[in-house]
């Protein structure tokens, strides 16, 4: 276990934990908006942690650049698509969940 692994492994494992938490939210939450909220947050953080873990293990700056670029793209796409879905759902009268 090289020193970089000591940093990488916890990052990767916590990243996957976030993903699993996100999918738990996807299954359990009552309506679209909460699921959207859960997913865009947890998946992006999860991906961020995993990318951080991989960056630590990466062996060239080009790979680091590419990994961060991928993460940026997913963030951009995730945020705007979530916004589009929310607006569309609201306009079509999907009711918010109230206690």
């Amino acid at each position: 276990m090289t020193p970089s692994d000591y940093i990488a492994v916890p990052l990767l494992v916590s990243g996957v934990m976030f993903f699993l938490a996100g999918s738990a939210g996807l299954l359990r939450f009552p309506d679209v908006y909460t699921r959207l909220h859960a997913l865009t947050k947890s998946d992006n953080v999860g991906l961020g942690l995993i990318v951080a873990g991989l960056v630590v293990e990466a062996d060239s700056w080009f790979v680091v650049g590419k990994l961060l670029f991928i993460w940026l793209l997913v963030l951009l796409a995730g945020a705007s698509v979530a916004n589009l879905i929310t607006k569309g759902a609201m306009q079509r009268g999907t009711r918010m969940w109230t206690r």
Binding site: L73, L76, A77, S80, N83, L84, K87
Partner: peptide, 15 residues
């Protein structure tokens, strides 16, 4: 297209 979609298209197409 609303502003969000417009900006997404403007950013993503050159990419």
């Amino acid at each position: 297209a609303g502003p969000v979609l417009h900006t997404l298209a403007v950013v993503l197409t050159p990419v």
